[in-house]
Nucleic acid binder design. Structure first.
Lengths: 252, 252
DNA sequence: CCTGTTCTTGCACGATGTTGCATGTATCTT
DNA sequence: AAGATACATGCAACATCGTGCAAGAACAGG
């Protein structure tokens, strides 16, 4: 049995049964426990499993939970969020994407602002419950766990029935050639659907997103009204976007 | 069973049932009470539980900064929720209403249960994000602030496209003559729409709801499969409901 | 084809972690 | 106050871990 094959098997087993007992796997595959232990150690180093006495467990969901609940947004995100929140006019309507930056925007909205917020993120909806004058509309659909938003056919369909002045979109990558990108194909489609329902679309991109690209393309620059970021106002990427006619707002 | 796995189990149990009895867990898992005690001592040292004579309790809500766990449900609601959660079969589908009791049900669902949960409550959706095997479907619509659920025409329409084995409905009043009642007319309509999409409908009613009535009628007894409550099993109201053919489950 | 190098694997062994039991003590119940 | 229950501690038996080491496989270069 190939070493890579063995690791594959371990990850598969971990995914299916939720745990690995070194002794059992060694017996099952007819190899020494030492090899299994070595594999598990490597896997753990790569963050693919959590090593425990006697075997291994899946990466602790608590780690995932942690960033989702990270109460305080990093400084960059907060600055970006403040600028974005200021774009929401009293009486206006805004489509809010999911993600931590968008959540920061929701938190940055003045508590007594009378506006309409449309979102596909239950997290953001929950965060806005205590904004008494905000009209909240939630787009339903299948909930995608890893980003905590609704996606898929039902959600896209629901989006067809609404429209708004402004759409605030989070992405994971902003790259002059690759454009706006995100890590999931369904999410990318959902973002397109949201953006299409708003008069203006602004992209939220804290500095660490600038110049990077993920797997799935979201929108061409032509469909974007502006970009909000806390990156250097004279960065080459920024100048490039300005040349393309994108309204770049720098959060200081 | 791995030691780390055991600790996971303890934390899960603590989250779902609100308490741990060392003796019971030891018997259940087939290990010595000493091991359970040692685990609890360690968890307590890490601030993950509060050690008490005979077992452990969740850390006081003030210490926990996770917003989701902030409100520990009162005992009655938790008992009702535990019985309700047990009605959800692996592989089955359930429509979960909004409200604090339904939220308690969501928390009482075993973390690794593979099932489909349909809800119109963003709060409940958020609470179930970290149940890796639960398929989550969120019904969209206008969000009603005071109960934090989606209601109205769009939500009712969305409900028409789904169906499930079971519907767990929260109400604010259970009265032998007035029937099931709630405090908002839109919510009442939404509850009817939800109930109509499930094969069986059970009503969640912790004891303080029994015998009371609110302004808006939800459903006649005939449409209800059963009632789950922690009230006295021989209370006149209960006997009356049984006579009407309602399956009354008493949570002890 | 041969040789030296590198990598992998299984084994040995001392170190460390875990478990259940026994014992004496603390705490609860009646 | 007395009996019952739960607790912490020490201990012995056992399991698991990490490391060093040697044998063998894979491979590159001559």
């Amino acid at each position: 049995m190939l070493a890579a094959e063995r690791r594959e098997h371990l990850l598969d087993l971990l995914g299916r049964t939720g745990k690995i007992v070194a002794k059992d796997v060694a017996a099952e595959l007819g190899i020494s426990e030492d090899s299994v232990r070595r594999d598990l150690r490597d896997l753990a180093t790569e963050g693919l499993c959590q090593r425990v006495y006697g075997g291994a467990l899946p990466v602790s969901p608590a780690v995932v939970d942690y960033d989702a609940r990270q109460a305080v947004a990093p400084d960059g995100k907060r600055k970006v969020a403040a600028v974005a929140a200021a774009l929401v006019r009293p009486g206006g309507s805004v489509i809010l994407d999911g993600g931590t930056t968008a959540l920061a925007v929701a938190r940055a909205l003045p508590k007594n602002l009378a506006c309409t917020v449309i979102t596909h993120s239950p997290t953001i909806a929950t965060a806005l419950i205590d904004h008494p004058r905000a009209d909240l509309f939630l787009l339903g659909g299948r909930v995608f766990k890893h980003s905590a938003v609704t996606c898929g056919a039902a959600a896209v369909e629901a989006a067809q029935n609404i429209s708004a002045d402004l759409c605030l979109l989070g992405v994971t990558g902003v790259h002059p050639e690759a454009g706006l990108t995100t890590g999931d194909v369904e999410e990318a489609a959902m973002k397109r659907a949201l953006s299409a329902r708003a008069a203006d679309t602004y992209v939220l991109a804290s500095s660490e997103k600038i110049g990077t690209a993920s797997s799935y393309h979201v929108l061409p620059w032509a469909k974007i009204t502006g970009l909000i970021s806390d990156t250097d106002p004279h960065a080459p990427v920024v100048e490039r976007l300005r040349a393309l006619g994108v309204d770049v707002l720098i959060a200081a």
